[in-house]
Design a protein around this nucleic acid. Structure first.
Lengths: 248, 248
DNA sequence: CGTTTGGTTGACCAAGTTCAATCAGAGTGG
DNA sequence: CCACTCTGATTGAACTTGGTCAACCAAACG
């Protein structure tokens, strides 16, 4: 089993325990995968985006651009995440996808996704569960942009990424590998990269986190959660699981 | 047929033409409805929120509160909208619901919603389509909070509400009934009500919109779309339908 | 090596918030 | 019918957060 299949399976296993034949079905879905270079963009008119992308490895993000050239990142995509589920039901233009690192992703046609959902209802349920999770994450980002300070947003995003990575068996509670640039953070958080830089400096000076050389290191996770008003419940792990991770 | 059933049916008819038996099924789903007073809140521990709410008439909104008491409105709910679909798949706490006007809503159990989806696949598809639409709306609000100015956000929201209302056969291209307070707008747009007030004054002075006495009146819709960077494509009506409504 | 990409810093500026009043309309009790 | 109260709208002045402009730096890479 490759690492990538591991990510989706690890994630799905948080939802239910797939049977051997369900696992085989997942592997079949992920069979038609492809490697994309770092920092490329798939726009809405791209042929690939007629399908759903399932990330096996690497990081990317979904985004919308405004006519004036400003870009808003909707969500970062890590292994095990789906891109373009919405496009199955909505005919309008969906989001754009951009890779951050090199990315290995499977392109699955809406048709086969629907077919699998019909034949393996529990897999269909897992897909809807994953889509719900991504919706919840987008809503929490909405809360962040609307009601959190710049420092709170940065802290919140770093904590969220940490939890999501642990969810697929990557990173640890003390830190994680993070290939984002400060510009990426800014585009996701509705800030400028200059201000993100200043916020990161302050968080470092306060002894809360260090983000340097593509590594996030938590120094005072509890303090960080305070300024972020972070409550992991929106990530779908019940409060018990949340307590287990954070020890409180 | 009551007005409320009309709203949901009108909306669904944009997606596909339901058969007589599908219409009957919808009416059955909406049978168990209830009237709620204006300005009440259903919190996450409420019994009602274990079910999905389908609005028949009246306005409400979904929200999340931060520990420090700040509230972020995720989306306004108008007749034909679903509340709580996400809770079916995600066990974490979903959002809170608050009524704005008096609201008539049907409470549908996740179980019967799933049963209907299985027996009437096209209705199931319409539900997923509606959920996708709401997700797209939330994402567009995310873009607004991240990358639009205060005036752009206000303008964008008013235009969005107008389109959504026309979608269910309410309001017209020249204006609509809008029971929101400036405080509601502020809570949705990540602003203070004081600043919303100033922005509305400016939009009025510029001869773009008037929002007064619960009525929105568009004076220069095209100019408003410019400062809002408004492109209705995210609302799922293809660009053709969009052109039909806006004449460009 | 030179170039490019991303990070860092400072001085200044502007959008939006906070605080503090005032005002208008709707409902309520006397 | 009239005070009283409550909610939401409105405005001004001072202030803060984050943005803009303009450098400069450091690592990576051809």
């Amino acid at each position: 089993m490759t690492i990538g299949e591991g990510a989706l399976l690890t994630k799905i296993s948080r939802h239910f325990s797939p049977s051997a034949s369900e696992i085989a079905e997942i592997k079949k879905l992920l069979g038609n995968h492809h490697e994309y270079a770092a920092r490329i963009e798939l726009l809405e008119d791209s042929e690939v985006l007629k399908a759903v992308l399932i990330l096996n490895s690497g990081w990317g993000y979904s985004f919308r651009d405004l006519p004036n050239g400003l870009r808003q990142i909707i969500d970062f995509m890590i292994p095990g995440d789906f891109f373009g589920l919405r496009g199955i039901f909505l005919n309008g233009p969906s989001l754009g996808f951009a890779s951050i690192t090199a990315v290995d992703a499977a392109a699955v046609s809406p048709h086969s996704l629907l077919a699998v959902s019909r034949q393996w209802p529990r897999l269909g349920g897992a897909i809807l569960w994953s889509a719900s999770l991504q919706g919840s994450i987008a809503e929490e980002r909405l809360v962040a942009l609307g009601r959190r300070s710049a420092a709170g947003r940065v802290a919140h995003l770093l904590l969220e990424l940490s939890v999501r990575l642990e969810f697929i068996g990557q990173g640890s509670s003390s830190g994680f590998f993070c290939p984002l640039t400060q510009h990426d953070l800014a585009n996701a958080l509705g800030l400028t990269s200059i201000h993100v830089n200043r916020v990161l400096r302050r968080l470092r000076q306060l002894g809360l986190v260090v983000f340097r050389n593509s590594e996030v290191e938590f120094l005072d996770r509890s303090g960080l959660m305070d300024i972020a008003h972070f409550d992991a419940a929106y990530l779908g792990l019940g409060r018990e699981a949340s307590r287990k991770i954070f020890g409180r």
